[in-house]
């Protein structure tokens, strides 16, 4: 995944079953952001792998003042990259079991 300067990780162990997971996002390299960034620290949130899309999370973070509108794409891409990796790992575990 491209280094967007925004880090997204699992905030807790993924049990591979629950559709809702806990993620944690923070800015590792604020020079990669286009807008002025207020250092908010690590932002933990839940994400439903089946019903939600990263773009809506990123937009809510902008609406909450964590990021500027100009950076909504970079934030949603960072979340998307991590979510894709989690889904890939889950599928790999399932296919491994099969």
């Amino acid at each position: 995944a491209e280094d967007t300067g925004v880090r997204v990780e699992l905030a807790e162990e993924d049990d591979g079953k629950k559709s809702s997971i806990a993620l944690r996002l923070w800015v590792e390299d604020q020079k990669k952001l286009k807008g002025k960034y207020k250092d908010s620290g690590a932002i933990e949130f839940s994400f439903d792998l089946e019903t939600e899309v990263p773009e809506s999370i990123a937009q809510e973070m902008v609406d909450s003042g964590f990021f500027l509108e100009i950076d909504v794409k970079i934030v949603s891409k960072s979340i998307r990259d991590r979510v894709s990796l989690i889904k890939w790992r889950r599928q790999r575990i399932v296919s491994g079991c099969n």
């Binding site: 300067g5 923070w26 604020q30 620290g41 949130f45 809510e60 964590f66």
Partner: peptide, 27 residues
């Protein structure tokens, strides 16, 4: 302060806490 802060937006909860120094790149 270093305590976690909770922000609500559109029914979603964001929990904000300090990032450990070790996890920050050359900021």
């Amino acid at each position: 302060s270093s305590a976690a802060q909770v922000v609500h937006s559109a029914g979603r909860r964001f929990i904000v806490s300090p990032v450990p120094e070790s996890r920050l790149k050359d900021q």
